[in-house]
Amino acid sequence: MAEQMITRDLKVSFGDHQAVKGVDMEIRPRAVTAIIGPSGCGKTTFLRALNRMHDHTPSARVSGEVLLGDRDIYGDGVDPVELRIRVGMVFQRPNPFPTMSIRDNITFAPKRHGLAKGKALDDLVERVLRQAALWDEVKDRLGASAVGLSGGQQQRLCIARALAVEPRVLLMDEPASALDPTATQRIEDLIYELKKDYTIVIVTHNMQQAARVSDYTAFFYMGLLVEFGETDGLFTNPREERTEAYITGRFG
């Protein structure tokens, strides 16, 4: 299921401003890759380039290559809709669809993609809610509005919703930054579970979180990938001075 992603000389600019300035990176399958760096370093912009979310920002320009498996997702004939079935995304703020029930939030995409119907769809709902560790809390009120859930529950619903299209890669943009410590803990546990089956890329400004959940860590600074390596090594023995300055809290 899980697939690797490779970026080659990936650049993203908005108008005159270049936010990502040529990044080469190899994202391993069945592992968690954390992206850290001070605000404005381009980490979210980089993440959003991995499922072509910049297509919908008129001023954004993307160049370079992003390989999913062995195919460039910016190449000719690649359909962004189909790409996003394989590369899912969870956003910074929980954004369940407020006009839909919990169940409909999950079935929205599988129905469009024709992934399942009837009993199979019910099974899918249960499976992803269990994967997201939300099933026991909501199984009796699947028809209720998603707005009634707590912030942490909403975010787990968003993760379940993303899993329901059976992606290979899951991109997470600071998924716990709007949550309290208990909810954060649950999300982190969840990420640990999910990496058995998925390739996960998580952007975070919280270094402890990166150290806790990730296998690999990338440090971004001013639109550049400064250092990339196994999380243990990067935090205990950084090769770059700027990385050390950042992880020891001297800036950012």
Binding site: R71, V78, D79, V81, E82, L83, R112, H113, G114
Partner: peptide, 18 residues
């Protein structure tokens, strides 16, 4: 994109874009 996309799904996708 790859062989995993069965024909019905590809057709469905084309219809959705249409």
């Amino acid at each position: 994109m790859d062989t995993a996309s069965a024909p019905p799904r590809a057709l469905r996708l084309r219809l959705r874009h249409l």
